[in-house]
Every structure is written in C-alpha cells, then in structure tokens.
Simulated assay, not measured.
Amino acid sequence: MQLRTDCKNGKKLSALGFGCMRFPTSGGRIDVDASEKLILSAVQRGVNYLDTAYAYNGNEAALGEILARNPGLRDKVNIATKLPIPRCQTQDDFDTYLSRSLERLGTDRVDYYLIHNVTSVGAWERLEELGIKEWARRQKEAGRIGQIGFSYHGCEADFPTLLDSYDWDFCQIQYNYMNEHYQAGTAGLKAAAERGIPVIIMEPLLGGKLASELPAAAQTVLEQANISTDPVRLALRWVWNHPEVTLVLSGMNAMQQLDQNIETANAALPCSLTAEEARAIEIARAFIAERYKVPCTGCGYCLPCPKGVNIPMCFAAYNTSFAHGWYQGMHQYIAASGAMEGKAHFASDCVQCGACQKKCPQHIDIPKELISVKRRLQVPGLPSIVRLGTRFMTR
C-alpha cells in the first residue's frame, strides 16, 4: 500500500482510507459479517484509516463490533469519527457525544476526531462560544482524541478563514475532478497544504457519479483516448495525482471495489497522471457538467423526508434522464417512488417545508429542484397509475 505522511504527527497513513458510511447492508441494516470481511481484507493489505461518524446510523456500533471480534485489530488502524455539531447546544454535549462514540466503538481513544459538516465561519464561531477550543485541548491531553480536525461543506471563500481560526491537525474536504471550484476546491486544497495541514478527501467519485453513472459521451471520450474503460481508476488517480492530498476515502461495499481501489492506490503516485489523461478528463468533465443537473451525492443527510419522498433517488433519476435518456430516468423514478413496496411517494408529495434543505451539505435548493423533477419525469396521472398497478400486482 502506498503510504503518505501526516505532516502534523509524522504518521504514515495509507493513501486509501476505508469510508465506513457505505458499509454493505442486508434487509435495511448493516451487514456486519460482510463488512468485517471487507475491513479485514483491507487492513491485511495495508489500509490503516477507517472513517465513520456518530451521525451514520448504526455505523460506529458496527465498526465497534468488528473491532471486538478481532483482538489486535484496533492497534493496526487509525479510527476517525465525527462530532454531530447541530446537536451540540452546550459544552457538556461535546463530552456526551464523544463518550457515546467511544462506547459504540469499544475504544478509549479516537485517532482523528472531526467537527462534522462545518458549513460556514458562523457555524464554527458558535462552537467557539461554547468553548470547543478549551474542550478539545483537554480531550487531547487526556488521550481521548489524537488529532482534531473538521469536515467542510461550505463555500470556497470561507475555507481559508476556517483554516486560520484554530491550530487544526487536519481537515477533510469534498474533492474530485468535477469539484475543482466547488466548496473548498483546488484553492482550498492548496491553502491547507501551504499551512501544513493534512488533507483527507471525501467523495472522490462524487457519490458514484464518476463511476457507474457517467454519461455515454463522457465514457466514449475516455475510451477514444485509449486510457481505460474503467472511469473509477481514472477519477481516483486524478485525486491522488495532487501531492497536497494526504489520504482518499472510498466507501467500498463489495470485495471487487476494494480490490480495484487498492490496486489503483498502490500505483497512483503524485504527479503521475499523463497529459493525455488530463486532457481526456477535461473533455469528459464538460459532458458530465452538461448532463448532471443536480449535484446530489446521495449522502442521505436530507432524509427522512416527512412526506416519504426518497430525495436522493429522485435526483439520481432526474440526472439519469439527461445522461442516459428520458425512459431510463423514468424507470428509475418509478423505482425511487417505492411503488414496488406498495408505498409510492413522488416529488409531487413535497410540501416545501424546507427541512431537507437545512441538512444538505451540498446546499442544494431541494424543494425547488424537486419541482424540476416533477416537471420532467412525473407525467400526468402517474401517481394514480402506479398505485393502481401496485394494487393489481399485490392481489
């Protein structure tokens, strides 16, 4: 496994980190046995960074069970988890959520602890007023936290200010070849590196958009450049090509994904992307930008919707209708409604309450975009037709 150095503490971190948020599931719950096989295989082959969060439903507990089943595993890995800042109203809440995370994980320390989903300078200032700096100092001295950092989902302009607001040990940003000028972007990546702050990358495949969901035109460009028919390798290599990147997280839920990503990580050295590959990405980027209308990564932070709308799936279907054709998008939209389970909820069920928009790390105007979904994919009478068909099939 390629190792890159954490310039703050000198640790050698695997270039590939395991993003636990997308652990495999079965029956709507995390499949701990399948997840264990992936984790053990990853660690055996050199992955030494596991990323989870308090807010990932059942995730910390699943990882904790895997650690408990395998004595000695804890000391081979660096664990990263995150403080759910919207739930923190007093300094005591910081203690509460860290303690719960430690209990779930079955450990006495978190190696990399993140202030989760910082979206603005104002969000950080609120935490400062609650005394988070002093609290973090005490936790580090007590050995409960190794490194303290933050994950960022705000605008490009605020990022340097946040970098200078505290003596951060690391930061985590969304970065891929479609997001050079989105959120922290390339400018933020370089700003952190200039300050000697390690950078962890999330969403290197833009929630799968740069993997299996590439528009046909973009895929053709890559194939004609005789680079690779596999867009995943190229997208990951593009991120690792930046020497400022310390580690790239990938949410792997199948052994094939793990095998491929480890193989790619071992060869994806800084500044190794060829000029031909870089040109092909530039052309493919233009095709993708034209066809993906809503920058949803499918993270699910917007859920649950009070009206049962599967917001990420609605946006995936909408984007598919532009990238791969209206009929394919329509088929996906019907599936997204939950009609096959007998409980159909469409974009038209949105009541514009705005609860989802407040939680979206991509700052998407979700109620507005759901109207666009309805206009494009919801033909007149569709809900009635689908519900009638569902009743007929379930007789």
Rank of each mutant, 00 (worst) to 15 (best):
L388P: 00
A284S: 14
G64C: 06
L234N: 00
A55M: 10
E103C: 13
T96F: 11
G329C: 13
I371N: 11
G106V: 06
A42Y: 02
A136Q: 08
T274E: 14
N176M: 08
G58C: 04
R395N: 08
T5W: 05
G207H: 04
G188F: 09
A211Y: 04
Y97D: 05
G72D: 10
C88D: 06
K307L: 05
S384C: 07
M178D: 10
Q89N: 15
E180N: 12
T390E: 11
V118F: 02
N9G: 07
L222H: 00
T320H: 08
Q219D: 04
A254T: 15
H116T: 06
S228E: 03
R87S: 13
P231V: 14
A355H: 13
G146M: 08
C353G: 03
V379P: 01
C353D: 08
Q91N: 13
A216F: 08
A62F: 08
Y56K: 03
L382Y: 06
L247Q: 11
S26F: 05
Y177T: 08
P367F: 15
R137Y: 11
F150H: 01
R285P: 09
N117F: 01
E60G: 01
S212W: 03
A55K: 02
E156V: 05
L114F: 15
R291K: 14
S212F: 06
C20W: 04
L67Q: 07
D349H: 11
V351I: 12
L38E: 02
K11D: 15
W135F: 14
M393Y: 06
I30C: 09
K293R: 15
R100I: 13
F315L: 08
N179S: 14
F346Y: 10
L3V: 11
E156W: 03
G143F: 12
I366Q: 03
I311W: 01
S120Y: 06
G208E: 07
S321D: 14
